[in-house]
Simulated assay, not measured.
Amino acid sequence: MADTAVPSPPPGPDDEADHAADNAADEPAAERLRQVLGPVTVVRDTVLSGGLYNSARLLELDDGRRLVLKTAPRASALALTHEQGLLGTEALFHRLAARAGAHVPTVLHHEPAGPGTPAEWLLLTYLDGTTWDAARDRLTPADRAALRHRLGESMARIATVTGPVYGYPRPAAGLSGPDWPSAFTAMLHAVLADAIRFEVALPAPAALLADLPVRFGHRLAEVRRPALVHFDAWEGNIVLARTGTGPWHLSGLIDGERAFFGDPLAELVGLDPLGSAEDDPDLMAGYRSLGPGPTIDTGARVRLALYRVYLALVMRVEAVPRAYEGEFAAWCDAWSAERVTRQLAALDALQA
């Protein structure tokens, strides 16, 4: 998002009164920590801003440890179809990515919603540093080039993980399948159904959008392995750190709650929702430094366009259950319409 002006998003769930009330009804943070860590003392409890769905708190303990407690909205909260058990997905992503050598928070505990637990929660270690988007103005061109190379390496490591199925990892959501065409079809059709449910006007006829996996099924079928994909690794979810005035380094990747198993090319769409990460030479050089990396041929460009349509639709539809307002809501509506229209044109050209 570095090259495009985007209005500031509305307050995240952790800042909204309804979610604050939900959290107040939950067990105190200190009690949750005692369940996992035994007797501990929280010396500071700070709300972390920036989230748009789950709430997050930084818990500082008297022994010096810094942990993050994430809490999902209650199960009754309005949400898109794929937004089920997101913290369980995040826990799975971080565990798998860590085994592959990527820098991510350590999962200490995940508690699904159930009797006595009105909302699922997740306890993680805290990554010291600042997000890339917050540090952007302090980065030199050389800093950015080196960091993008490191990010490409991290994405390559994550892509080595192979999942048991294609699609989202929660079977109950029905958004997975034995192959990538069937899984992606289910994912796309789910967000189109959500648009109907939330009465969201689509930027193109629903039938045309729903038919995309059929028109380009042969291109989706080129994906033969369900690779792990973060799909939300934009600059707000990348943590950077430095010592004094020394060089910046990649501290880690956070918020893996949107992860799925599928085409590793989809990672490039989540990395740069507004641009074209595949055209970034530093990022791609880092990716290919650990292996051959993706080939950006006609089939790849078709699939990238499909994933950009999907992401734009998700961002457009989620604006309603999340009650976006003002400048950000207007920007999201206009941007998603333009993005979908442009990608549909690109698909027509690629097919021709």
Rank of each mutant, 00 (worst) to 15 (best):
Leu188Ala: 12
Pro203Lys: 14
Leu188Cys: 08
Pro273Val: 06
Pro205Gly: 02
Gly262Tyr: 11
Ala207Ile: 09
Arg225Lys: 12
Glu278His: 13
Arg219Tyr: 12
Ala193Ile: 02
Ala204Glu: 03
Ala285Lys: 14
Leu271Lys: 00
Leu250Gly: 05
Ile196Gly: 09
Ala285Met: 10
Arg224Pro: 04
Phe184Asn: 06
Leu274Ala: 13
Gly236Asn: 09
Phe198Cys: 02
Val239Asp: 03
Pro213Tyr: 05
Arg258Gly: 03
Ile196Lys: 14
Glu222Thr: 14
Leu271Val: 10
Trp180Ser: 01
Asp272Tyr: 03
Val200Arg: 09
His189Thr: 13
Pro213Asn: 01
Gly244Phe: 02
Arg242Val: 08
Ser251Pro: 09
Arg197Ser: 13
Ala193Phe: 07
Ala227Leu: 07
Ala193His: 09
Gly275Cys: 06
Leu228Thr: 02
Pro264Asn: 07
Glu222Ile: 08
Glu222Gly: 15
Thr243Phe: 08
Pro226Cys: 07
Arg224Asn: 10
Phe261Ile: 00
Asp263Ala: 11
Asp272Trp: 03
Gly252Phe: 00
Ala206Asp: 11
Leu228Met: 12
Pro281Gly: 10
Arg242Phe: 14
Ala186Asp: 06
Val223Thr: 14
Glu278Thr: 12
Leu208Gly: 09
Leu202Met: 07
Thr243Val: 11
Glu278Lys: 07
Leu209Ser: 02
His230Asn: 06
Asp280Val: 07
Asp280Lys: 06
Asp194Gly: 08
His189Tyr: 03
Val269Asn: 05
Gly217Val: 14
Leu220Trp: 01
Arg258Cys: 01
Arg215Val: 10
Thr243Ala: 14
Leu192Asn: 05
Asp282Val: 04
Gly286Trp: 03
Pro181Phe: 04
Asp272Val: 06
Leu253Lys: 09
Gly275Asn: 06
Ala285Cys: 14
Val191Leu: 05
Leu265Tyr: 01
Asp211Ala: 15
Gly275Ile: 10
Met187Asp: 04
Asp263His: 05
Met284Asp: 00
Pro264Val: 08
Glu199Pro: 03
Ser251Gly: 15
Ala266Glu: 12
Ala285Tyr: 06
Asp232Arg: 11
Ala201Met: 07
Glu267Asp: 10
Phe231Val: 11
Arg215Ile: 04
His218Met: 12
Ala204Asp: 09
Ala210His: 08
His249Asp: 11
Pro247Asp: 12
Trp234Val: 04
Pro273Phe: 09
Pro247Met: 01
Met187Val: 05
Arg197Trp: 08
Leu202Gly: 14
Gly252Trp: 05
Pro205Val: 13
Asp280Asn: 15
Met187Arg: 14
Glu267Phe: 12
Pro213Gly: 01
Leu265Trp: 07
Ala201Asp: 15
Ala206Tyr: 03
Arg288Phe: 01
Leu283Tyr: 03
Leu274Met: 05
Met284Gln: 04
Leu209Ile: 13
Ala206Ile: 13
Gly246Pro: 03
Leu192Arg: 02
Ala207Trp: 05
Phe184Ser: 00
Leu208Tyr: 05
Pro247Lys: 02
His249Ile: 03
Asp255Glu: 09
Arg225Asp: 05
Thr245His: 15
Leu250Lys: 10
Asp232Trp: 00
Leu271Thr: 12
Ala204Met: 06
Arg288Cys: 04
Ser289Ala: 13
Arg225Ala: 15
Phe261Thr: 04
Gly286Thr: 09
Ala259Ser: 15
His230Gly: 04
Leu240Ala: 10
Val191Lys: 00
